[in-house]
Every structure is written in structure tokens, then in C-alpha cells.
């Protein structure tokens, strides 16, 4: 690592985050399970194939249109498990609370966790609470860990994308990032843009019923669709070609991006998944996704190619092509 201090960008999910993991954590923790670098670890315990993951949530503000930090904390971990095709079962919840947080707010957050857990069919079975001095945290931080069961015959990993495969997404991109950012940037919406945060294990189950032959599932959270597809391209050593006009983006999200100088491909999602499936299964898969409440706007947005391994290329609306790189640093509102 070139930096002497940790910068915000080390946590943005982009290139610096990857370097931090690769250069600092991996060499120290070094083991074959971690080295897979999927969103969850697959482990065998007493002959049972388990998926295990953890995630921390520090979103500011903790309440935003369409959700709150509690809902995110459950969805995030449930989705990390679901992206391995696992059925999530149990979660833990750790709270770091800033002195002075109104109890009402905590209650709202906790109730929202329960509601989301019920929807996802998981139980929150253990927890921990720490309170820190005012100023040592921003209201509330939550960590959740989760375990789930991986069904027979399911083999999903970021490294399984193959040339010819199709890339699917389950709906509009960028809603979450824009919903959160709008609050901070004084933007309002005629029709509210709500965070898309949602537990996706139900959708994944419906997809696995169509076929267990899903190669990759990933939720494009921090760093957005662009960063996640870059990860897949590099893990699978393939190229990916996207069709700009096929990518579903709400006009309002596009407008907010124009105002703030953002690219929607890099804006965070909390209820989206990218699926890479064999071409012959793509049509059926798309139909099944569209039938699910969290997949009504699903679309096939691109395909996997043998060319330019490790790179994602976008065919632009006007017929040009450009490389879509990983997010570098955080996206900041800009005027230039």
C-alpha cells in the first residue's frame, strides 16, 4: 500500500478497498477459504455445506426514503449469503451506538431489522451492544453476520463467468445511492426515489428453481454495477460487454446524477443483483425474475466475451465504445 493513512476511499468499495484487502488483510489472515474472495465464505461443518458472511453498516443519515440502517444491515448480510445461492438462516447483530441517540430511533431501527428478518425468513439469534462517547461514532453503526445452507448442486462464484454467458440485472440501478445522497445534497423528488434495499433470497430461490446452473450472482452495492462487473471480469478472467441502452435507470436517478456529476453505473444499490447465466437459460431466467416482486424490471444488459479479459466495455447509445473501470475513490459531487 502506498498510503500511510487510511483514507475514506479505502472503504468505498473501489480500487483502494481492493488494494487494502489484497495488500494488508490477505497476507496476514492467509487461508484457502478467505482467499476465494467471494462475498461469503463457504465452509464445511460436520459435513454440512454452510455459507458465512459479515458486514458493517455506517450509513449517514441512518434514516432515508425507503429504509433505514436496520433494514440495510439485515438485507446486506442476507444478500451476501443469497449471492452464493445459500438459504440464509441465522444472523447476529452488533450495535455501536453514540451516546445521546434517542431510544425511539434505536427502537425504530431494531423493529425495522425484525420486519426485514421476518420477510427474509431469518432469525437474529445473538447480539452485542457498545456505547461510545459523543463524537466517537455517528449516531449508530451496526454489524451483522449470518450463516446459511448451500443447497445441493449449487455452485456459484465470481470466478465462474464463461464467454457466451448473459448478464442480467433485476431492475433499476442507482436508487439507493441517490436516495441517500439526495438527502445530503438538498435534492427533492416529485415522486420520491426510495432506496431499493430488499432481501433478495426469495428472488434467488425463484431463479434457482428455473435452473441451478447460475454461474455468478453478485449484489452491486458500494461502487455500483461498474465495480461489481469489473470484479467478476477479473475473477473469471473474461471480458464483459454492456449495452448502455439496455441498463434500466429511472429518469429521475439519471437527472440527479446529471446534477451531482455522478455516473449511475457507480452508484450504490442495496436491492439489486447481477446474474451471469448460460445464454440458453437467459430467457427463462429473465421471465422468472420478472414474475418476482423484486425483479419486475429485470433486463438482460450484456454478455460475457473471451476478448479483453478483466475489462468491462460499454457499447454507448450512439454506437461508440468505452471501457468501464472500477470506481476509484468515492464519488464526490462535482461542478466540473
Amino acid at each position: 500500500m502506498a498510503e500511510k493513512k487510511i483514507l475514506l476511499a479505502h472503504g468505498s468499495g473501489g480500487r483502494l478497498s481492493h488494494q487494502l484487502v489484497k495488500d494488508l488483510f490477505l497476507p496476514v489472515f492467509d487461508n484457502d477459504v478467505l482467499n476465494q474472495l467471494d462475498d461469503r465464505a463457504e465452509i464445511y461443518a460436520a459435513g454440512v455445506r454452510l455459507a458465512f458472511t459479515t458486514d458493517s453498516f455506517v450509513v449517514s443519515p441512518p434514516f432515508f426514503p425507503g429504509g433505514d440502517i436496520g433494514k440495510l444491515a439485515v438485507c446486506g448480510t442476507v444478500n451476501d449469503l443469497a449471492m452464493g445461492g445459500a438459504e440464509p438462516l441465522y444472523l447476529s447483530a452488533g450495535f455501536i451506538i453514540e451516546e445521546g441517540l434517542p431510544v425511539d430511533q434505536l427502537k425504530t431501527i431494531v423493529e425495522s431489522m425484525r420486519k426485514t428478518a421476518d420477510e427474509a425468513g431469518v432469525k437474529i439469534v445473538c447480539g452485542d451492544t457498545k456505547v461510545v462517547e459523543r463524537g466517537s461514532a455517528d449516531r449508530i453503526f451496526i454489524n451483522t453476520s449470518g450463516i446459511g445452507l448451500v443447497p445441493e448442486g449449487v455452485n456459484i462464484s465470481g470466478s465462474f463467468a464463461r464467454p457466451g454467458d448473459k448478464v442480467l440485472i433485476n431492475g433499476y440501478i442507482g436508487d439507493h445511492g441517490i436516495a441517500v445522497m439526495a438527502e445530503r445534497q438538498g435534492l427533492s423528488f416529485r415522486e420520491e426515489i426510495a432506496s431499493d434495499s430488499a432481501p433478495l433470497n426469495g428472488l434467488v430461490k425463484a431463479m434457482l428453481e428455473v435452473s441451478r446452473d447460475i454461474h455468478v450472482l453478485r449484489d452491486p452495492t458500494r461502487g455500483g454495477v461498474a465495480t461489481t462487473l469489473n470484479e467478476i471480469a477479473s475473477q473469471s478472467n473474461v471480458g464483459i460487454v454492456l449495452q448502455e441502452e439496455a441498463i434500466p435507470v429511472r429518469e429521475q436517478v439519471l437527472a440527479a446524477c446529471e446534477i451531482l456529476g455522478f455516473d449511475p453505473l457507480y452508484v450504490a444499490n442495496e436491492g439489486k443483483l447481477l446474474a451471469v447465466v448460460p445464454a440458453e437459460k437467459a430467457g427463462l431466467m429473465l421471465e422468472a425474475m420478472k414474475k418476482h416482486p423484486y425483479g419486475a424490471e429485470s433486463a438482460i444488459i450484456g454478455e460475457v466475451v473471451a476478448d479483453h479479459p478483466g475489462r468491462v466495455v460499454l457499447s454507448t447509445g450512439i454506437g461508440g465504445r468505452r471501457i468501464v473501470d472500477m470506481l476509484v475513490g468515492e464519488q464526490l459531487p462535482r461542478i466540473c
Partner: peptide, 9 residues
């Protein structure tokens, strides 16, 4: 120009 791939066309 880059974003829309204009140079290449």
C-alpha cells in the same frame, strides 16, 4: 467525448 465513445467512431 470519451463517455460516449466519440473518438473511436
Amino acid at each position: 467525448i470519451f463517455r460516449h465513445g466519440i473518438r473511436d467512431i
